[in-house]
Amino acid sequence: MTDVVAKPLRPADWVAGFALLILCQLAGETLVQILRLLVPAFAFPGPVIGMLLLVGLLALMGDRARPVIASADGLLGILSLLFVPSAVGIMQNGELIRAWGGPLLLAVVASTALTLVVTVGAFILTERWMSR
């Protein structure tokens, strides 16, 4: 891993970088499927396991990680776009939204604000308590 601007990536490198992201996810999903045989209610996210796997690989790969880093940065740069199809899905729930829209909106907005305050507070207070 390097921050030095080096020679541009070759086409095959872009594909290899993206392939590694896909393979990490595949490994994560496979592990989840295996664990589901043991615990059917298991709902652990496969991509999160893939992410942890990739952190380990990045530590091992050194400079050879450049292609996968380029692919990952590219995807993260357009992260918002990837949520648009799910957001449009709101049109499917017209009836429920009409019936419960107000309370649900209030629950979401109030709960999100409270979560932000509690989380940032817990983080900062723990940091202060530790540095005492």
């Binding site: 996810q25 893939g50 990739l54 990045l58 880093i69 990952a72 940065d73 993260l76 949520f83």
Partner: peptide, 10 residues
Amino acid sequence: LGPATVSLAV
């Protein structure tokens, strides 16, 4: 979204 979640490793 899946590969993007994996990308958060970077």
